[in-house]
C-alpha cells in the first residue's frame, strides 16, 4: 500500500511538474514601466523594433528615424543616448551582439546597418559570399543575432534564411518550406533552432540546428491569434509571438502548443495597439514596441 501511494504521488508530481515549471519560467506580463520620450521630451513615434540585454535597451524609433539607447535597472529604465545617422533612414528592426555592436534593419533601403557601441556608423552588412538564388537581390524582412553573434537574415526575395558569421561572411542557408503564407520574422534559440512566424497562416515553422529545411511546428494557430508579426524566445522553453492585429502577446511551447495570451488591445498601460516587436532579457524583462501607442512598454 505505501508503495502504491508513493507511485501515485510520483505520477502526480510528474504530471504537474511541466505546468509548474512553465508558470515559474514564463513572463507574467505585468507592466513595469512605459517609455514615451527621450531625455529632451521628444515623444516616440511608431517604434517598430526593440533589442535588449540585461542592462541595455535599444529602441528603433521608426517614425523619428532614430535609435534610442536606455540603461535597464531593476524596475526602471534610464535614457542613455540617441543614435541618428544619415545612413539609417527608417529603422524597423534592431539587434545588439555580445560586443555591444548595434545592427539595425533600414526598412526603406532594405539593408542592415552596422553601428559601433557608441552609435557611430560602421558600414552596411555586406552579406559576403551569399549564393544568388534568384538573382543578386536580397530583401531582408527581419534578422536576429544568436548568442555566438552569428547573424540570421530572413531573405523574403529568395525565400530563405541566410546564416552569416559575426563578420558577415556566408555560412549556410535554409530555404523556406514549399507552402507558406508570408514570413514576417524569425527567432533563434540557445540551442541553435530557428523559428519562422507565418503572418498569413498564423503558423510557426522550425529548423533544428544544422537542419537543411523548415518543418511546421504547429498547425494554424488562427484560433489564438489574428496576424502575428514578431517571434522571439526567452531561452527557457517559451516562444513569444506578437499578435499585431489582436494587440496581444501569445505564448507557445517549443512544440508549438498554445500556452497563453497576454495583454490585449487598448491605450492604457498594460494594453497594446499594434505591437510590432518584442525582446526578452535573461533578467525576465519583456520589452514591447507598442507601435500605434507610440511607446515601448516594459513588462516582467
Amino acid at each position: 500500500m505505501p508503495i502504491k501511494l508513493l507511485y501515485t504521488l510520483l505520477f502526480m508530481l510528474m504530471a504537474l511538474a511541466p505546468a509548474a515549471s512553465f508558470a515559474e519560467q514564463a513572463i507574467l506580463f505585468q507592466p513595469v514601466v512605459s517609455i514615451y520620450a527621450d531625455a529632451e521630451g521628444q515623444g516616440l513615434l511608431n517604434p517598430e523594433g526593440v533589442a535588449c540585454s540585461d542592462n541595455t535597451l535599444i529602441i528603433a524609433d521608426t517614425g523619428n528615424n532614430r535609435l534610442l539607447q536606455y540603461m535597464v535597472k531593476v524596475d526602471t529604465v534610464e535614457f542613455a543616448s540617441q543614435i541618428k545617422v544619415s545612413q539609417l533612414t527608417n529603422p524597423i528592426r534592431v539587434q545588439v551582439n555580445s560586443q555591444g555592436e548595434i545592427f539595425a534593419l533600414d526598412g526603406k533601403n532594405r539593408r542592415i546597418v552596422r553601428l559601433k557601441k557608441d552609435g557611430q556608423f560602421a558600414g552596411n552588412l555586406d552579406l559576403k559570399g551569399v549564393p544568388p538564388d534568384t538573382g543578386a537581390t536580397i530583401v531582408p524582412r527581419s534578422f536576429k543575432i544568436d548568442q555566438e553573434d552569428n547573424i540570421f537574415v530572413l531573405d523574403i526575395f529568395s525565400g530563405r534564411v541566410i546564416v552569416l558569421n559575426p563578420q558577415g561572411d556566408y555560412l549556410r542557408q535554409i530555404p523556406f518550406p514549399k507552402e507558406f503564407g508570408f514570413f514576417s520574422d524569425l527567432a533563434v534559440d540557445r540551442g541553435g533552432s530557428v523559428y519562422l512566424i507565418d503572418s498569413a497562416n498564423s503558423m510557426v515553422y522550425s529548423a533544428a540546428k544544422e537542419a537543411t529545411d523548415f518543418l511546421p511546428l504547429s498547425k494554424s494557430l488562427k484560433e489564438y491569434m489574428n496576424f502575428p508579426t514578431c517571434i522571439t524566445t526567452d531561452n527557457r522553453g517559451v516562444l513569444y509571438v506578437t499578435d499585431q492585429n489582436g494587440g496581444s502577446i501569445i505564448l507557445l511551447g517549443l512544440d508549438g502548443s498554445f500556452r497563453g495570451r497576454k495583454a490585449g488591445f487598448g491605450w492604457n498601460e498594460g494594453l497594446l495597439n499594434y505591437p510590432a516587436a518584442l525582446c526578452i532579457n535573461s533578467a525576465g524583462h519583456a520589452f514591447v514596441a507598442d507601435r500605434d501607442n507610440n511607446r515601448v512598454q516594459v513588462f516582467r
Binding site: T89, G107, K108, G135, F157, G159
Partner: peptide, 30 residues
C-alpha cells in the same frame, strides 16, 4: 525573380513604391 521582372517596364511605379518609408512586404518576396 519577384518584382525585378516587372521593374523592366514598370520602373517608375516600382521606384515610386520603393521610395516610400513603409512597404507592403509581399511585393518584395519571391
Amino acid at each position: 525573380g519577384g518584382f525585378e521582372l516587372c521593374r523592366g517596364c514598370h520602373s517608375n511605379m516600382i521606384n515610386e513604391t520603393l521610395a516610400q518609408n513603409r512597404l507592403h512586404w509581399p511585393l518584395l518576396d519571391r
